[in-house]
Nucleic acid binder design. Structure first.
Lengths: 210, 210
DNA sequence: GTCTATACAAAGATAGAC
DNA sequence: GTCTATCTTTGTATAGAC
């Protein structure tokens, strides 16, 4: 609102910074407690801002949640988009598994945010599932079906293969607490998980030449 | 409080019926919205009882939730308890997978209740994880390690094998909405899931004789 | 045992001063 | 842009009539 470019850019910089801080804090809170289980106060505290100030940047609690979700689906699908129909079938799939596992490791909160949303009936991302997820999955499953038909990998149900990759990799983010209760608090499960999953998919997908 | 056995039993019968109705309704609501996302009103409506009447049977919202959780862990571990160290290794594991998948099919709400709890940090069942889940898992993983050492099944990390069984089977209950969005609303995913999982674990665990 | 009415606390959102 | 104070709604739980 001020006239000078300098001040305008200052404002924008603060806004950007606070917006980012809020989203960061909100990710923490929403991913742990779910949408209805989270309060604006909690998010404010986590962000170091007062409740009214927080609502100066976002018009409502739901607006914050939407901002998080709207960016999420895109990022979430990146590893699958990178699956290359022209590549070597088995390595392509193993690399996809690897990328997905890396996402769980690096973005566990995003994974839990997504999981919370799906478990609770996906009320806010049902549209994105139909518009973005399903078409991409259909496309990539067709690729996999092609590889199977060509005898490049062993025959399996492409869609359930997809489900298995998701569930196996996301488990380490979503059920993190349980994994650590079993393996011990100080254990990093990811290195062994990577070995395990590579073994699993290699054995399952290697064509039987007998 | 009445003197005659008849009336006393009548009361008890009503109490049992209403208690069961409430728990049934609460399972519906809690498994969908999580603890903090659920309201006593919702549960009351689902149970066909007024809010105060519901609180006549359970002292608080948390008491209802506790009643559900306390029974859950035991049921949840039954399929794993049945894993028999004396049995044939591969069929034993495949049967465990099968029982676990059947649990997802028959008790999807219980699965989601559990998933909600774990994702949100397991505040109310951390104790049960340490006291019941971990010892049982340790025991059964030792059995599996024995089978591997004896060359009865191919070498894999026993604990990650366990995680993979859980994640693959529970996925069909917890991410039910997503599965149906991908496969179509009217598709029953379980028959093909069973074939897929049997194939997966057979290929992974069959010892390589080469 | 079940209801209506209500107390009480928590949470979302706004007003208005600074 | 940020705060204090406040309004309003919603939600947990209880009081007390029937």
């Amino acid at each position: 609102m001020t006239k000078t470019l300098g001040k305008t850019r200052d404002k924008t910089r603060i806004q950007r910074k606070n917006t980012a801080t809020i989203l960061e804090a909100a990710l923490d809170v929403f991913s742990t407690h779910g949408f209805r289980g989270s309060t604006v106060d909690q998010i404010g505290n986590a962000a170091g801002l007062s409740k009214p100030n927080l609502l100066y940047y976002f018009s409502s609690k739901e607006a914050i949640h939407n901002a998080l979700l709207s960016g999420l689906m895109d990022t979430w699908l990146d590893p699958l988009r990178a699956l290359d129909a022209q590549g070597d079938p088995l390595p392509e799939i193993l690399n996809y598994v690897c990328r997905k596992l890396k996402m769980s490791r690096e973005f566990p909160r995003e994974s839990r945010l997504f999981a919370n949303e799906i478990i609770q009936g996906a009320p806010r991302i049902m549209g994105a599932l139909d518009a973005e997820l399903r078409p991409l999955v259909d496309e990539k499953c067709a690729v996999i079906a092609g590889w199977i038909a060509a005898g490049k990998i062993a025959p399996v149900h492409p869609y359930h293969l997809m489900f298995s990759i998701w569930s196996l990799t996301q488990h380490y983010a979503d059920f993190d607490v349980q994994v650590h209760r079993i393996l011990g608090q100080d254990t990093d499960p990811y290195p062994e998980a990577e070995v395990y999953l590579e073994t699993l998919f290699t054995r399952m997908l290697t064509p039987q030449t007998i």
